[in-house]
Computed example of a mutant assay.
Amino acid sequence: MRILFLGDVVGRSGRECVVSRLPALVSRWALDLVVVNGENAAGGFGITEAIYDELRAAGADAITLGNHAFDQRDALVFIERAEGLVRPMNYPAGTPGRGAALIEAKNGARVLVANVMGRVFMDPLDDPFAALDRTLEGAALGRVADAVVVDVHAETTSEKQAIGHYCDGRATLVVGTHTHVPTADERILAHGTAYMTDAGMCGCYDGVIGMDKEEPLRRFTRKLASGRFEPASGPAALCGVAVETDDRTGLATRVSAVRMGGGLSEVRPAFWE
C-alpha cells in the first residue's frame, strides 16, 4: 500500500497548494491513501465544512485535527456527519466527533486513521498512551485494519518520539504534527512502524510557523499584541511523509519525507519517482 500524509494545512495559501498539487500526486504515485492534517486550514484556526469538502475532493481520504479542532463553530456540528474527519481521541467524553475512523482506501483496504494530542505544553487532556491502547486493541493491525496511521498532534519532540516507540509494531505510521516545521528523522522503527517527528506544514514558510511575520515579530520585540495573527500569503510548500507498506503485515517497508515548493529544498520519495 502507498500512503501519503500531509502536515498541517495553513490558511488559503496552504489550501491552494494542496488542492493544486495533490490530484496529480495521487495519479503519479498511484496513492492508495492520503491523510491530511487540516486543523489550521480556515484562516489558520480550525476547519469549515466547505474546506473539508474541498480537501476531500482533491484526494484526501481522511483529515485529522488538533488543538484548533473546534475554533470554527460549525465544526461542532458537521464533524458528526463528516466520516473522514478525525479529532484527537483523548478529548473528554462527550466531545463531538471521533478520535479514530476505519477508512476505505482507494485500493479497498481498511485503514485505521487515529488522532491523539500530546499533553506537554498543551491542553491537559486525557492520557494519550492509554487512549491509543484502547483504540489499537480494538482495531488491531493485520486483523481489523490493513494499515494504521497515527497523527500525534503535540508540542515536544520527546513526547512524539515516546508515542512512536509505544506504538512500534502496532501501527504502520506514527507522524507528528502541530509545530509546522519538517524534521529530518523519518525512519522505520525497530518493529516496523514508520516514524517522523513532524511532517511540517502545507503553507507559506516566509513567515512564522505559517503566520504573516509582522505580528509575531511585534509581539516578540515589544511584548504587545497589535493585531490578530493572519496566515502568510506567499507561495506555499507542500510537506509530509510517504510510506510504502508490506501488504501481508501492514508494517512499513519504505519511508521518505516529502517537500515541494515554497522555497524549501525539494525531497520526493525516490522509490515512487
Results as ranks from 00 to 15, higher is better:
Glu80Lys: 01
Val34Ala: 11
Gln72Cys: 08
Glu159Ser: 09
Met201Tyr: 04
His165Tyr: 13
Ala171Met: 05
Ser256Asn: 10
Arg219Asn: 01
Ala82Phe: 05
Gly263Ala: 03
Arg81Asp: 00
Val255Ile: 00
Asp212Lys: 15
Val9Gln: 07
Thr249Lys: 04
Cys17His: 01
Asp247Leu: 12
Ser20Pro: 06
Met201Ala: 00
Pro88Met: 06
Asp74Val: 15
Leu125Ser: 01
Leu25Asn: 10
Arg268Gly: 11
His191Asp: 00
Gly169Leu: 07
Gly142Phe: 01
Ala237His: 04
Thr245Tyr: 03
Tyr166Val: 00
Pro216Arg: 11
Arg248Ala: 14
Ala50Cys: 14
Thr64Leu: 10
Tyr195Val: 11
Gly44Tyr: 12
His191Asn: 12
Thr221Asp: 04
Ala270Lys: 15
Val267Ser: 14
His178Pro: 08
His153Lys: 06
Arg219Ser: 03
Asn37Gly: 09
Val175Lys: 06
Glu54Ser: 06
Ser233His: 13
Ala105Leu: 06
Thr156Val: 08
Gly99Met: 00
Cys167Glu: 02
Ala24Leu: 08
Lys213Tyr: 14
Asp146Asn: 04
Tyr91Phe: 13
Asp247Ala: 15
Thr249Trp: 08
Cys17Trp: 02
Leu76Val: 13
Cys202Phe: 03
Ala252Lys: 02
Gly46Asp: 05
Gly192Ser: 10
Leu125Cys: 02
Ala82His: 09
Ala101Ser: 05
Tyr205Pro: 10
Leu4Ile: 02
Phe70Gln: 01
Asn107Val: 13
Ala93His: 15
Ala75Val: 09
Pro23Thr: 08
Ser256Asp: 09
Ala162His: 12
Thr157Ala: 07
Gly46Arg: 01
Ala237Leu: 04
Ser158Lys: 06
Met260Pro: 13
Thr221Glu: 05
Leu251Asp: 01
Pro88Ala: 02
Ser226Asn: 15
Ala62Tyr: 02
Glu104Tyr: 05
His153Tyr: 11
Thr95Leu: 09
Trp272Gly: 12
Val181Ser: 14
Leu85Met: 11
Ala242Trp: 08
Glu186Met: 10
Ala100Tyr: 00
Gly44Asn: 12
His191Trp: 09
Glu54Trp: 07
Val149Glu: 06
Gly66Glu: 04
Phe271Asn: 11
Ala184Gln: 15
Ile209His: 14
Asn115His: 08
Val113Arg: 07
Leu125Trp: 09
Gly203Gln: 10
Arg248Trp: 05
Met89Ile: 15
Pro269Lys: 02
Arg187Trp: 05
Lys106Arg: 11
Ser13Thr: 02
Ile79Cys: 05
Met196Cys: 14
Ala114Gln: 06
Asp185Asn: 08
Val26Asn: 02
Arg2Asn: 03
Leu6Asn: 01
Pro231Cys: 04
Arg254Lys: 15
Arg119Leu: 03
Ile163Ala: 04
Met211Ser: 10
Ile209Ala: 12
Met260Thr: 06
Asp246Asn: 12
His153Ile: 08
Leu112Ile: 05
Gly44Lys: 13
Gly43Ile: 02
Arg56Trp: 05
Asn40His: 04
Ala62Pro: 07
Thr48Ile: 05
Cys17Glu: 11
Ser226Pro: 13
Phe129Val: 03
Ala199Asn: 08
Val149Pro: 07
Thr95Trp: 03
Gly142Pro: 07
Thr135Pro: 12
Ala252Leu: 00
Leu189Tyr: 09
Asp127Cys: 10
Arg28His: 13
Arg259Glu: 10
